Simulated scan of single mutants.
Amino acid sequence: MAIRTLVWGENVHEQTNKTVAGIYPEGMHTQIAKLLAADEEISVKTTTLQEPEHGLTERALGETDVLVWWGHQAHGDVGDEIVERVAKRVWEGMGLIVLHSGHFSKIFKRLMGSPCALNWREAGERERLWVVNPGHPIARGLPAYFEIENEEMYGEPFSVPEPLETVFVSWFQGGEVFRSGLTYRRGAGNVFYFRPGHETYPTYHHETVGLVLRNAVNWAYNPERYPTITTAPNVPVENALEPIEARGGSVHAEGQEGFR
């Protein structure tokens, strides 16, 4: 069965900026979806911030194996209830790929538990991405490095937790470096942050970027779901694996759910 992938796009700059609209006339989310669809094992849908519940309904997420997220200008417009819904699905096993300025998205900061801040410069400089983990599935089929002629600079320090794996490190024409491909696991969900993708440059028309994204979807895919991972059931004394007797007092009445 194909990997059911949902590309979420903010879809704001495409409507308000002529440069972005010229590069992505059908929206960035549509172009990202086209890159992914080159893999016949990936089934792709798109949705945007403007849809009811931002297109991230319970049903939509229930039919999603991997969620790809691009946002920038309107992070604050994403409802907190939706963020918690997505986080729960990631904990249960849905993959999440966060792109470029999505480092400041509510969902990425929620899952990282850190500021996710960095240095930046919008000057259209060359980015050279070095593959520092060539045996990683996300790096499959890639050369030792690849270049993007025009990109926004992101520079260290990047205030995220220590990653599970670092796949790419970027060097920029101005001299800065950045950890630009990081993997995490949150609950049962695989998370990948990929740095390139500034909206005023044609990054998502880049062939090698498309390969990275397809590899990332395949890596992030987990066919299993663990719906009980967020529950905290009370195990009654009589259900203990070994015979025990209750001793001392309790702050919970019998059968009462735990405090949250």
Results as ranks from 00 to 15, higher is better:
residue 37 A to K: 13
residue 51 E to Y: 05
residue 207 E to I: 09
residue 122 E to C: 11
residue 68 V to R: 00
residue 243 P to E: 09
residue 79 G to H: 03
residue 239 N to A: 12
residue 239 N to T: 07
residue 201 Y to D: 14
residue 260 R to G: 06
residue 90 V to Q: 06
residue 83 V to Q: 04
residue 215 N to I: 08
residue 11 N to P: 00
residue 111 L to D: 02
residue 241 L to Q: 05
residue 200 T to V: 15
residue 32 I to F: 11
residue 129 L to E: 07
residue 16 T to E: 11
residue 201 Y to V: 14
residue 260 R to M: 13
residue 62 G to Q: 10
residue 232 A to F: 10
residue 205 H to A: 13
residue 143 P to L: 08
residue 122 E to Y: 14
residue 248 G to R: 04
residue 190 N to A: 13
residue 21 A to Q: 13
residue 102 G to M: 10
residue 43 S to E: 15
residue 223 P to M: 09
residue 208 T to S: 06
residue 119 N to Y: 13
residue 16 T to N: 02
residue 185 R to E: 14
residue 47 T to L: 06
residue 25 P to E: 10
residue 123 A to P: 02
residue 31 Q to M: 09
residue 186 R to T: 06
residue 97 I to G: 05
residue 237 V to F: 03
residue 250 S to R: 01
residue 137 P to A: 10
residue 40 E to P: 08
residue 176 E to H: 13
residue 244 I to Y: 02
residue 214 R to N: 12
residue 2 A to Q: 08
residue 211 L to E: 15
residue 29 H to P: 05
residue 32 I to N: 01
residue 39 D to S: 14
residue 92 E to I: 06
residue 6 L to F: 01
residue 46 T to E: 11
residue 107 I to G: 01
residue 142 L to F: 03
residue 54 H to K: 11
residue 244 I to S: 07
residue 74 A to R: 00
residue 219 W to N: 05
residue 77 D to H: 10
